[in-house]
């Protein structure tokens, strides 16, 4: 039964990608897209489409759509795991300031000229370190995780987010268009426009690895939802797991932010929606979050590409417009406030 759902999910992702690469400022008919795919995979021969269309498809759209899929799945995964870690459905990399920490780390590395460091690993590495710092900061401010109330956690996240964003923007401002530095808009509202084949492999690999890692730890994730004490009585020691998971989430967030900039709420919207349908058990939530997260962000990015005649709408505007109402609903619902 689960295999049926998984297959259905993967098929939907495939068709979403087909659709997404055919739509844009220049519409490329689906027939051409499919013909070009066939050509690429050696199924059919000949020049089914023009060189211009082929370039748009293969060099611009496909990497961008794949990056949207990876980022959507990855941020949703991060949200899901963070929510289990702090036992609260409001947690998410953006809301808890982890994404801002990542952006500060990334821009700091760029400012220091470390872009080329270790074959381009420098920026994501800086983002990871920034994300870890922000995570530690938020948890310290919120108090011991076990007793941290939702309100304290959200406030701590807001403070850390404001501080790290300000510092990141300060660096952007000081950098004066240093090599590889992107605009403040990129670091506050995100963009998938920079996707190229040589920048998407790292987020792709990280998201797939993260998905496999957590798929092998569904038991621990489930136990976490019940709280530390109950977890121990079910034979799961969360002390070590918690630290490892936090580090992994910081790493994944850091990698995604270093390529896509910051956009919020994906990690909140998707797990919330998926849980509403399949319940809280991670055996069902994890695959759902990955599939729905990927499809959601691919489609959101399509909207960003076509909504304005003049160019791209930053993806962060769209995700915030969808996410903020859901956040409010969760926050003001009695269960959301918790304890």
């Amino acid at each position: 039964m689960p295999l049926v759902y998984l297959t259905a999910g993967l098929v939907s992702i495939f068709f979403t990608i087909l659709f997404a690469i055919s739509v844009g400022v220049v519409d490329i008919p689906l027939a051409e897209v499919i013909a070009s795919l066939g050509e690429h995979s050696g199924l059919s021969e000949g020049m089914a489409i023009s060189q211009a269309h082929r370039d748009i498809l293969w060099e611009l759209r496909l990497p961008r759509v794949l990056l949207a899929g990876f980022a959507g799945a990855g941020l949703s995964l991060c949200g899901m795991v963070m929510q289990a870690l702090v036992q609260n459905p409001l947690a998410e990399p953006y809301i808890l300031g982890v994404a801002s920490g990542a952006s500060l780390g990334a821009v700091a590395v760029i400012l220091l000229g470390g872009t080329a460091f270790l074959a381009g690993i420098g920026v994501p590495l800086g983002a990871f370190i920034g994300a870890v710092a922000a995570t530690g900061f938020v948890l310290a401010l919120a108090g011991k995780e076990r007793s941290a109330s939702a309100v304290r956690l959200i406030l701590a996240g807001a403070v850390v987010s404001a501080l790290f964003s300000a510092l990141a923007n300060l660096v952007v401002y000081l950098a004066n268009d240093a090599e590889g530095m992107r605009s403040a808009a990129f670091w506050t509202m995100g963009s998938l426009a920079g996707a190229r084949w040589d920048t998407i492999w790292l987020p792709g690999a990280a998201v797939l690895a993260g998905a496999v890692f957590f798929a092998l730890r569904l038991r621990e994730l489930n136990a976490m939802l019940l709280g530390e004490e109950t977890a121990v009585t079910l034979g799961v020691d969360l002390l070590g797991a918690r630290r490892r998971y936090l580090a992994l989430i910081a790493l994944l967030t850091g990698i995604i932010v270093s390529v896509c900039g910051i956009f919020g709420f994906v990690g909140l919207i998707i797990p919330h929606a998926v849980r509403a349908v399949v319940g809280a058990d991670h055996r069902r939530v994890l695959p759902g979050v990955l599939i729905v997260g990927a499809i959601f962000l691919i489609l959101a990015d399509v909207l960003c590409r076509v909504l304005l005649p003049s160019g791209d709408l930053p993806i962060g505007i769209l995700t915030a417009l969808v996410g903020a109402p859901i956040f409010m609903r969760l926050l003001f619902r009695a269960e959301g406030l918790g304890r």
Binding site: R219, N222, L225, L226, G227, L234, R275, G279, A280, D281
Partner: peptide, 17 residues
């Protein structure tokens, strides 16, 4: 106190962890 939406069946299944 649980902040997540478990069905009773899922909750009892947690005992199998």
């Amino acid at each position: 106190k649980v902040n997540f939406d478990f069905t009773v069946e899922d909750m009892v299944m947690m005992g199998r962890i």
